[in-house]
């Protein structure tokens, strides 16, 4: 049998290593989208990835790219060092919400503020996944986690932090968008957003970040389908989708 037309295949930029993610987790979808974008832009040979600490700590091995793992929260500083050493390479960080929105706030804020010409893919699932579902800075008010067993209380724990909105106030941020991957349509939108973020870097326009709202069925204690519904019904109310800054008009 000969193949007339390939309609789907594993992206070249993904390695053969099997994903370690739980059923229903969105990391796998986003990994695939990043790999497809890198393939389509033909930049695999000049791309270096910086993986975080968290569930996606293994991401450096899931991509068939040069890569490293940064200390918790420090990926934007590591990426900065790489980009300053090799300005013509494409450098991206992949970070979760504990990594980016808690321990690594200083690094992400200052990388964005410098207009560091790197791309960040930010996975926000409102909990610490790897350590077993503790409260994150992005945990919704009232949401139960192992360290907010009675529900997140604003008086004790403050409010869910909106990183995309915050970073969009900085002049160095060129493109910031929040998306989700709960439906085929949203997957397509997310892929377009990721592609745009990498194109922003290719054009040298400054810092770009795509925040993807994601599920964590294991730690949320829900089925994958229930998680998708919870994400759409609750997370998007605190974290609305959309483009928060776009300083690329007329430049791309």
């Amino acid at each position: 049998m000969t193949i007339d037309k390939i309609v789907a295949q594993t992206p070249k930029s993904l390695s053969k290593v099997e994903f370690s993610y739980c059923p229903g987790c969105h990391h796998g979808i986003v990994h695939r989208l990043i790999a497809e974008v890198i393939d389509e832009l033909g930049i695999a040979s000049k791309t270096i990835m910086v993986a975080p600490v968290g569930c996606s700590v293994f991401a450096y091995n899931f991509f068939d790219l040069d890569g490293t793992v940064a200390a918790h929260g420090r990926a934007p500083a590591v990426a900065t060092g790489m980009k300053r050493a090799l300005p013509d390479r494409i450098i991206f960080t992949y970070q979760g919400d504990g990594d980016l929105a808690s321990i690594g706030t200083a690094e992400i804020v200052h990388a964005a503020n410098r207009g560091e010409n790197i791309t960040t893919i930010f996975i926000n699932n409102a909990v610490y996944g790897m350590t077993g579902g503790q409260m994150a800075p992005t945990t919704l008010l009232g949401q139960k986690t192992t360290t907010s067993p009675y529900g997140r209380d604003a008086k004790a724990n403050g409010y869910p932090i909106r990183m995309s909105e915050m970073l969009s106030t900085l002049d160095g941020s060129a493109y910031i968008e929040r998306t989700m991957v709960t439906t085929p349509q949203n997957v397509i939108k997310t892929k377009a957003a990721i592609k745009k973020a990498f194109q922003v870097q290719l054009k040298g326009l400054g810092f770009s970040m795509i925040e993807v709202l994601s599920t964590c069925p294991t730690n949320w204690g829900m089925t994958p389908i229930e998680s998708m519904k919870w994400l759409e019904d609750h997370m998007t109310k605190t974290f609305p989708l959309g483009v928060f800054v776009d300083r690329t008009k007329g430049l791309m």
């Binding site: 490293t68 200390a71 590591v78 060092g81 980009k83 050493a85």
Partner: peptide, 26 residues
Amino acid sequence: GTFLQSESEVATVNMLYGAACTGRKV
């Protein structure tokens, strides 16, 4: 060459990590 003033020593050492990954003298 490249000079960069970081936001903290925590960031400095991680910038050093990233730049050192590229095999340059940092």
